[in-house]
């Protein structure tokens, strides 16, 4: 309790200072993120906390866990050395681009597909995971693939994910409902708000593992190479990220982490997702 009261005191002080000091500094987003990371010995990562297997909040410890979280930590150590700290900030598909562009985070590792539109706005590392979009439905559902998403059906997606754009192309007659994150979206599916939930297969397998009354159907109908996203113009950080990814792939860390999270997921092929 005393510690919490103290934290409250610190917050008061910090905010009071913030109100006094007018913000006249240069935009955080424009300064060299790698130089800042080296100076402060930390990289601020945006990670998912709503996505099982990739980044999920553990309510017991209050920590976020998953493949991408482990990758973020390993990459940080690779770039900054043993003392480097990975600071984790929660993001959703909806908030990750503004978070990056505003400079709230240095890099996002959060089930983010490298797309041409996003490349105009952001830098991406090489791909570290090959996913593909699919559908999650209740076990007894009549919907078996994208073709069954006809007029009168509705499908749940997440704001800011490119899977909502893809599904509009693949099934133009279905109604798309966009929720703010994967946890909300899965809850909406369980509350019968839509006939199916669509996003990348890796995320869907995580949901199916959590609640086996829901299954992934119809195979994948897109290719979704995940990359680490950074702000446009952060060339130094992007290069450092690519080098670190290379090293992790060569020294076996990457494969070990992949197996740790995905080897016992039914229906999932660890070989298939390696880029």
């Amino acid at each position: 309790m005393a510690k919490r009261i103290r934290r409250l005191g610190v917050l008061f002080a910090a905010l009071a200072m913030l109100l006094v000091v007018s913000g006249c500094g240069k935009s955080v987003a424009d300064s060299d993120a790698l130089a800042r990371a080296k100076r402060t010995d930390k990289i601020v990562w945006g990670v998912k906390a709503d996505t099982r297997l990739f980044g999920l909040m553990n309510t017991k410890t209050g920590q976020i866990q998953g493949f991408e979280v482990d990758m973020a930590k390993a990459l940080t150590k690779q770039i900054l050395g043993k003392n480097g700290k990975a600071e984790l900030t929660q993001i959703t598909s909806d908030t990750r681009v503004p978070m990056l562009k505003a400079g709230n985070v240095d890099a996002v590792i959060g089930t983010m597909t490298i797309t041409p539109e996003r490349l105009k706005q952001l830098n991406f590392s090489k791909s570290y995971f090959s996913a593909g979009q699919s559908l999650l439905v209740a076990k007894d559902s009549k919907i078996k693939s994208v073709k069954d998403l006809k007029k009168g059906t509705s499908v749940i997606g997440v704001q800011g994910s490119n899977s909502v754009d893809n599904i509009k192309k693949a099934a133009p007659d279905t109604r798309v409902l966009q929720l703010s994150d994967y946890s909300q979206a899965f809850t909406a599916l369980k509350s019968h708000q839509g006939d199916a939930l669509t996003t990348d297969n890796g995320i869907l397998y995580g949901m199916s593992q959590q609640d086996p009354r829901y299954v992934v159907v119809g195979g994948t109908f897109t290719k979704e190479p995940y990359g680490i996203a950074m702000n446009k113009g952060q060339t130094n950080l992007t290069n450092a990220m690519n080098q670190a990814l290379d090293t992790l792939q060569k020294n076996g860390t990457y494969e070990r982490l992949l197996k740790k999270w995905f080897s016992d997921v039914p229906g999932f092929d660890v070989q298939e997702v390696q880029p």
């Binding site: 598909s93 909806d94 681009v97 562009k101 704001q159 800011g160 703010s180 909406a188």
Partner: peptide, 23 residues
């Protein structure tokens, strides 16, 4: 309504922000 996919102004704004990247 933006929290529950209610198609209101805020919901549409969030989606436009996410697709144009111009928050």
């Amino acid at each position: 309504l933006a929290f529950v996919a209610g198609f209101d102004l805020m919901y549409q704004g969030k989606i436009i922000a996410a697709t144009t990247f111009n928050t």
